[in-house]
């Protein structure tokens, strides 16, 4: 049975596809977007995390998990090894026994497809006629066999499927996954590949060509293209218009909309929990500017939300 690593499972999700959905956040992503709001989903291996707010500074972790080099200095719990090497961090069980508050926690858990299906079946009454399963992440396409097995089984149990993805993978992987999807959400961040690479770590040719083919070859699948509007990256009319132009030829295919998402800083505490630097610093995007860009977008493309 296929197995994969998952960051988090979220029920009663109302923003990740139609209806009431259960979102499975995959762990691991080939990109390193500087604005990423889910940094805990970037690495493929389990990690330690620590929440300052609930920590009692009791030092129990330092004592009980001494093997793993945990320290408590200046009211900060930290640990030496962040490589993800096998055995470099304690197990879930060890952490649970050590930390009374769950301040210290393990991010990333292995699941078998069958375990996830059991969880989904329990949630089925809530899906009604519109909701269902959403794969998110992280990047679901980065665990293609796991994702495929999960989607197939879900479909077999009458559960509708959606995905939030970068569309960054070999075409046959993308094609295969898309064939099990009812509702496909994918990002287009910026058309300039150089900028794309600078801000996300990878160029964009592959994902753009995948998206183009998907829009043409999967007429029955509903697509939602998402553009996070990020200060300094694409918060200018030119960048937005460029994306609009890319989508323009598909304007009449139906089942396609383009959603602009306003940059937010809600991921900041998660960086702190992982002892990572937040790469965006203090930038902000004003509501006025966002609204302005949205109207620019609607000028180029009909179905903007």
């Amino acid at each position: 049975m296929e197995e994969g690593i998952v960051t988090n499972i979220q029920h009663f999700s109302l923003e990740d596809g139609p209806g009431i959905r259960t979102v499975i956040f995959f762990k691991g992503c080939p990109f390193r977007c500087k604005w990423c709001a889910n940094p805990e989903t970037q690495k493929f291996h389990p990690e330690l995390g620590w929440s300052r707010g609930s920590c009692l500074q009791c030092g129990s972790c330092v004592k009980k998990l001494y093997k793993y080099n945990i320290s408590l200095k200046n009211e900060e719990v930290n640990w030496g090894d962040k490589t993800g090497r096998a055995g470099s961090i304690p197990s879930q069980e060890e952490v649970d026994l050590a930390c009374p508050t769950k301040s210290l926690h393990i991010i990333g858990k292995k699941y078998k497809v069958s375990e996830l299906i059991d969880i989904l079946i329990e949630q089925k009454p809530f899906f009604d006629e519109t909701g269902g399963l959403t794969l998110s992440g992280g990047e679901p396409l980065a665990q293609p066999n796991f994702a495929e097995a999960l989607l197939k089984k879900a479909k077999g149990n009458g559960i509708r499927t959606a995905i939030e993805t970068t569309s960054y993978a070999q075409w046959d992987v993308v094609e295969n996954i898309a064939s099990h999807i009812d509702y496909y959400m994918t990002d287009i961040k910026v058309m300039d590949s150089g900028l794309h690479e600078k801000w996300t770590g990878l160029p964009n040719q592959k994902l753009l060509s995948n998206i183009e083919r998907l829009l043409g070859e999967f007429p029955k699948v509903h697509f939602r293209i998402r553009t996070p509007v990020i200060p300094g990256v694409n918060d200018n009319p030119e960048a937005i218009i460029a994306i609009g132009k890319f989508l323009k030829p598909f304007e009449n295919r139906g089942e396609l909309e383009w959603e602009l998402l306003k940059y937010h800083r809600l991921g900041v505490p998660k960086y702190e929990a992982l002892h990572r630097e937040y790469p965006m610093g203090l930038v902000e995007l004003s509501q006025d500017k966002f609204n302005e860009l949205k109207s620019v977008a609607s000028f180029v493309f009909e179905n903007v939300i």
Partner: peptide, 29 residues
């Protein structure tokens, strides 16, 4: 709740909490 993101309100810093209180675009449940 925001598209593709979720976290507990009480774990946000005070200024982010303030932000949430002021915003309408996000999703809470």
């Amino acid at each position: 709740r925001v598209a593709g993101y979720s976290a507990y309100f009480v774990e946000l810093s005070p200024d982010l909490q303030e932000d949430i209180i002021q915003r309408t675009e996000h999703e809470l449940s």
